[in-house]
Simulated assay, not measured.
Amino acid sequence: MVGYTIRRIIQSIIVLLGVLVIMFILQSLLPNPARAIVGVHASPAVVHAFIVQNYLNKPFYFQLWHYLYEVIWQHTLGTSYKLNESVGSILKRDAPKSFLLVGVALLISIVVAIPIGIFQAVRRNKASDQAVTGLSFVLYAMPTFFLGELLILLFSEYFHLLPAEAPQGSTVGQILAQPTGLILPIATLALVNFAGYSRFMRSSAIESLAQDFIRTARAKGLSERVVLFKHMLRNSLIPIVTLIGLTLPAVLTAGLITEFLFNFPGIGSDYITALTSQDYPTALGITLIVAVFTVLGNLLADIAYAALDPRVRY
C-alpha cells in the first residue's frame, strides 16, 4: 500500500508540472494585456513600463522560468495585474471561503446520497424508488446557474425566507456569522451533486445485492441491517469513491459559478473578474488551483480504491 501510494504521488507531481507548463504556454498565446490593464488613454511610456515590470518583453523561456520560480520556490503564483499583489495572497484570503462553501455542500450531498441510494436499491422499482429517481433526473439535468436562479426566485423573491445574496466578509469567521446567507448557495451545489451520487449509489447497491456473498450472508440468518451496512456497503462504495474523486474538480468549478451567482466573496468572483479584466496571472493561479484539485481528487480516489479493494495495489 505504501509503495502504491508513493508511485501515485510521484505521478501526480509530474502531471501537475506538465499542466502548469501547458497552461503557461496557452496564456502566452493570448493578446498582450498591457493596454487593457493601464487603460486605453495611457501614454506609450506607461505601457512600456508595465511591459518591462511584468517581464512581457522577455523571451518566452525566461517568462516560463520566472513563473515556475514564483510558483515552486516563492509560492506567490505571480502578481495580479489589477490588484498589484501576489496571486498567492489573493488565494490565501479568498480560497478558504470557497473551500468552506464547496466542502460543506459536497459533504451534505454525500451524506444524503448514500443512504438514499441504498433505500432506492432495497425498494427497487417501487413507487418511492421511482419518485426519488424522477427527482434525481430533474436535478441532474439542471445547470447549476439555473437551479440557483430557481432557488432565489422561490425562497427569496416569492416566500422572502432567505437572502438572495451570500454573506459578505473577508474571513471565514465573518462568513459563518451570517449562516442564513449560506443556505441557498450550499443547497444549489448539494442538490446537483446529490442527484449524481444517489444514482450511482443505487446502481452500485443493486449490483452488490445480486452477488453470491449477499445471498450467503442472508442464508446464515444475518439481519437485513447487518447485510446492508456490513457486507453490501463496502463493496458498493468502491465506484462511489471513484466518482467523488473524479467529480471533485467539477464540484469546484460549479462552485465558481455559484459564487458569481450569489455574489459570494470567494475565488469564483476573483476568477470572473480576472477573466473580464485580462488579469492573466490571477486567472492562471485559480486555474492551477482547479488543476491541483483535479489531480488530488484522482489521487485520493486511487488511494481509497486501493484501501477498499486490495487487488488494485497489484
Score class of each variant (00 low, 15 high):
Leu184Ser: 04
Ile186Leu: 10
Pro167Ala: 08
Leu162Ile: 02
Ser170His: 11
Ala164Tyr: 06
Ser236Asp: 01
Ile175Lys: 07
Phe155Arg: 03
Thr242Cys: 01
Ala217Tyr: 09
Glu224Phe: 00
Leu182Ile: 05
Gln178Met: 10
Tyr197Met: 13
Asn193Leu: 14
His231Leu: 01
Phe155Ser: 05
Leu176Tyr: 12
Gly221Ile: 04
Ile206Ala: 09
Thr180Asp: 12
Leu191Gly: 06
Tyr158Ile: 01
Lys230Met: 06
Leu147Thr: 04
Arg225Ser: 07
Ser208Gly: 00
Asp212Leu: 04
Leu228Lys: 00
Gln168Gly: 10
Leu182Arg: 05
Leu161Ala: 14
Ile152Val: 15
Ala141Met: 12
Leu151Val: 09
Val192Gly: 02
Gly148His: 08
Leu161Trp: 15
Thr144Tyr: 06
Leu147Met: 13
Leu161Glu: 09
Ala177Thr: 04
Ser236Val: 05
Ile183Thr: 10
Gly221Val: 03
Glu157Met: 14
Ile238Gln: 03
Ile183Gln: 10
Gly221Trp: 06
Ser198Gln: 14
Ser204Asp: 09
Phe145Asn: 10
Thr216Phe: 14
Phe155Tyr: 11
Leu237Arg: 00
Gly196Lys: 08
Pro167Ile: 10
Met201Val: 11
Ala187Met: 15
Gln211Glu: 14
Thr144Cys: 13
Leu182Cys: 07
His231Asp: 01
Phe146Ala: 15
Ser203Val: 08
Phe145Asp: 07
Gly148Trp: 11
Leu161Ser: 12
Gly173Phe: 05
Arg234His: 08
Gln168Asp: 00
Asp212Gly: 01
Gly173Thr: 11
Val172Gln: 08
Leu184Asp: 02
Thr188Met: 12
Leu191Phe: 13
Ala166Glu: 09
Ile206Ser: 11
Val227His: 06
Lys220Asp: 02
Leu243Cys: 00
Ala217Lys: 07
Ser223Gly: 15
Leu162Arg: 05
